[in-house]
Write a protein that binds this DNA or RNA. Structure first.
Lengths: 183, 183
DNA sequence: CTAAATGCGTCAATAATACTGACCAAACAG
DNA sequence: CTGTTTGGTCAGTATTATTGACGCATTTAG
């Protein structure tokens, strides 16, 4: 019996939802295994479409992440990007260098601090990022539509809760002032 | 914080996120980028703890997935496991073989079909899986507790929506009849 | 009883993503 | 000037994944 109908009914019939806040301490094993499965399958299929496009260009998921976060914060420094991605300089270099050579990303010397290399997408980079974006939009839109607005809010809260401290601060900065407003 | 009682109330009080179902067609760009960020950071941190334990044993995330899904369906065939994981036989072999040599997983010849190798966890395998499980339980429990029961339901709906057809059928089988039974 | 199909294991070769550690250059800050 | 920070690059290695092919045991079809 999947949890779907009226949630009020669920409250009664599906005790796995759990009645109130403090009872969540009593998170049953099966609930966690469910979460593991959901995250595994959900994340994989979320990235599947974009992965296929990328493979056709000889790129991988790492390239997408760079395009995504550079597009999200044009003018980001290499160091900030490293912090967000949580990888080493070398790993980033292997991905970033081809992206620059192929003309998807450009560097500009920082004005205040000329050591910095501020990264931005070129038009070509914007176009590719948009193609990947549109591909994922379909997937997310369908999921959001099927689940409904209240579920979307819940999804966001839980995902935010899964993040550690580091990710939360990066996240806050991304969704914050210069990210383009939020709801 | 109105998120506590019946989820039907939530359905009403949380509509400020978006007006109504069909308006989700208007999924704004910023909302999708938010989802991308959430999935990236959330998934990464969800697996981070277990990854660390695994690294200490010279294993990786792939080993965990095998332990997880074999633990979830003891007696699963190699073919079914391949289908769930969506990887090739060779990739599975590289992970499964060490797990068997180290005594985490055992094979048994199928009774109906003696070509089949039915996989199960040994006591040692169960113990390791549990250790990894407990590690992730902390993360998920915190997220669930912070988000509240209604949010958890929403999270599940959205994650299920992200899955493609294949994943949904695997998922249904995992959560279905024989998931918890058959020991 | 052959012949085909299935389930599984294994071989070789390759690619993408990541790691550690080290070293160098440019630029900033005291 | 000295020390630190930012960034690029080198060498070496590990994990997870790929494709294609072959072999063996077993089941199923004709």
């Amino acid at each position: 019996m999947p949890v779907r109908g009226s949630a009020a009914v669920v409250e009664v019939t599906e005790t796995r939802i759990l009645p109130a806040g403090h009872n969540l301490l009593f998170l049953r094993e099966e609930e966690l295994r469910l979460a593991q499965d959901l995250l595994f399958f959900g994340y994989r299929d979320f990235t599947a479409g974009a992965d296929q496009i990328l493979a056709g260009l000889g790129m991988g998921r790492a390239h997408h992440r760079v395009l995504h976060f550079v597009g999200r914060r044009p003018g980001i420094t290499v160091g900030d990007l490293l912090g967000i991605l949580g990888i080493t300089k070398q790993s980033l270099g292997r991905v970033l260098q081809p992206l620059m050579q192929e003309g998807y990303v450009i560097q500009a010397t920082g004005e205040n601090d000329r050591r910095q290399r501020l990264l931005s997408l070129t038009d070509k980079g914007v176009a590719l990022e948009r193609q990947l974006f549109d591909c994922q939009r379909e997937t997310v839109m369908r999921a959001y539509r099927e689940a409904g607005p209240a579920a979307v809010d819940g999804f966001r809260r839980v995902m935010r809760g899964l993040m550690g401290e580091d990710a939360r601060s990066h996240f806050a900065r991304l969704e914050g002032p210069e990210a383009g407003g939020r709801r």
